[in-house]
Design a protein around this nucleic acid. Structure first.
Lengths: 214, 214
DNA sequence: TGTACATCAGTGAACGCGCGTTCACTGATGTAC
DNA sequence: TGTACATCAGTGAACGCGCGTTCACTGATGTAC
């Protein structure tokens, strides 16, 4: 259904821009198919052949758009990074004030990971291997920056730069770990008790004490 | 070398117990080979065939000891859980007092994960799929318990059970996230500055404020 | 406007790989008499 | 003590699978004249 809609749209908008070879469409379709695979069947399902199959195209067609498997993963990971950055910006803009903003941005981060586990895993793998990746226009850079800004608005300023960076490390760890913990069984009764997953996340984040000192 | 030692020991102790078919040795050798593979080449290298190759045995021999691939992963994951639990117990016993103990146990957890990344990944996967695993003598249960005890000794008691569980969730998240964060590039200068990875971990954990309130 | 040409996205066959798993077997060992 | 037997750990061939990647190709499209 989602796919039907997409292809109808693709057919409807025949001359999308001035330059119109018979280019472009498959690449977008492949990226969309890749994200569908990623969320439906997980990171291991995101193979070149699986991608071609999902897009209804021959097994080798994707090679005209992605040099190899790693390039495909990289391209899709970039899309995920852009989406996450957008979600964080949105949370920031709708919650303009210190502590409230910090929690909103954090919740947005964790909720993105929970809603897109395959993408989050891909992004994490890419992050871990980051050194072997062209850092030129590194879109991942935006995410730590957004989070750092949200927290620095909520925390008391510190003269000690090392202390500041250690606090940032702790905050990063908390967010990343919360993604795991929210998926554990033992969190289920707490979510029920508090009424929703989001309430659970907010309650946990509310116990980050550095923010309390603000 | 490790392997040489093990096989020498195995040969030396010929009649290890009363009952002595030609049993037992390969299973231990396979588990050892599996752990070697896991740390040397990562979780994806831990295949039935790779295991047999590493142990110098035919590709199908492991099937006499592990029903299938999942059973192999499960068995090796159990060993990892036992090791981690032992490391946590050791940290607890050598640091008997509240806050000091909490940090020592936490550091032991993170250091285990950093020193055994393949095993930690396997254990995490197993944990995530825990519901589909026989919970009878679940050795994983010991790890949350040890961590929970270490923290409850360092934190002020709370009357509110929900509050206590939310704090536990935050602590869990911090530990698991710290495993990631300690591997990020941006942690490297902090490790250098503080003199060691352990010092970095302790410094971050020292900023968990709930412990400060104790 | 019409035709020849160049471009290049997409095809389909083929390669070699490692995997999990099955099956009938072999051979060393322990047990029963 | 000696022999026949049962057990069962380990073997080797074989299966079907999905993968990444190459290669020569085809065919639709845009461009040049």
């Amino acid at each position: 259904m989602d796919r039907g809609l997409a292809s109808v749209m693709a057919e409807t908008s025949k001359p999308p821009l001035a330059k119109r070879y018979h280019h472009g469409d498959l690449e977008r379709a492949l990226l969309a198919a890749g994200r569908r695979l990623l969320e439906r069947d997980g990171l291991t399902a995101l193979s070149m052949r699986g991608l071609a199959r999902e897009a209804g195209v021959s097994a080798t067609a994707p090679y005209h758009h992605f040099k190899d498997h790693a390039a495909l993963l990289y391209a899709i990971g970039r899309e995920g990074s852009a989406d996450l950055a957008a979600a964080l910006r949105d949370a920031r803009d709708t919650h303009p004030y210190g502590r409230d903003q910090m929690i909103a941005v954090s919740v947005a981060y964790v909720e993105f990971a929970l809603a897109n586990p395959g993408m989050y895993q891909l992004m994490s793998d890419t992050t871990r291997l980051r050194d072997s990746v062209p850092p030129e226009d590194d879109p991942e850079g935006a995410i730590p920056r957004l989070i750092g800004q949200a927290f620095s608005g909520a925390l008391p300023p510190t003269h000690d730069d090392v202390d500041r960076r250690l606090r940032n490390a702790l905050i990063w760890a908390t967010l990343r770990g919360l993604v795991d913990v929210a998926q554990f069984r033992f969190a289920d009764p707490l979510k029920d008790l508090l009424g929703s997953e989001r309430a659970f996340l907010e309650a946990v984040l509310d116990r980050i004490p550095m923010a309390r000192e603000a």
